[in-house]
Nucleic acid binder design. Sequence first.
DNA 1: CATATGACGATAT
DNA 2: AATATCGCCATAT
Length: 122
Amino acid sequence: MPQPQKSLTFFRRVVVIIKKIPRGQVATYGQIAALAGNPRAARQVAWVLHSAADKENLPWQRVINSQGSISLPRYGGYELQRALLVKEGVKFDSAERIDLVRFQWRPKIIKKKKENKPGARL
DNA sequence: CATATGACGATAT
DNA sequence: AATATCGCCATAT
């Protein structure tokens, strides 16, 4: 018997995650890789975008690098990505970087139960 | 199995 | 700050 819900491939998990990035916010390759279960697979996220951004209709423009900047080369998609983000309200500073503190998506950690320590002070 | 690819990330220089 | 180098690793072939 095959497992009822065999874990999805990394590829699929990444696709699902990227689709959840809210408009006006961004996520980094490494962040997405981590959410997909492998914090060291940032490059694979790039690969997923390369191979499926279009087919899967992903909000690919919301994925940027850990420096808060666009990874696509100038005249190779950079301008388009920048324009799409600006249109969503994302701001770029004078160094062409996005302030991650302001714009990075911070999904709620769903995880399992078990947290909630009554009386715990932080 | 062996190699190649890649919109990365961290570190060294 | 800008560039170079290396480590990583899911997929593709």
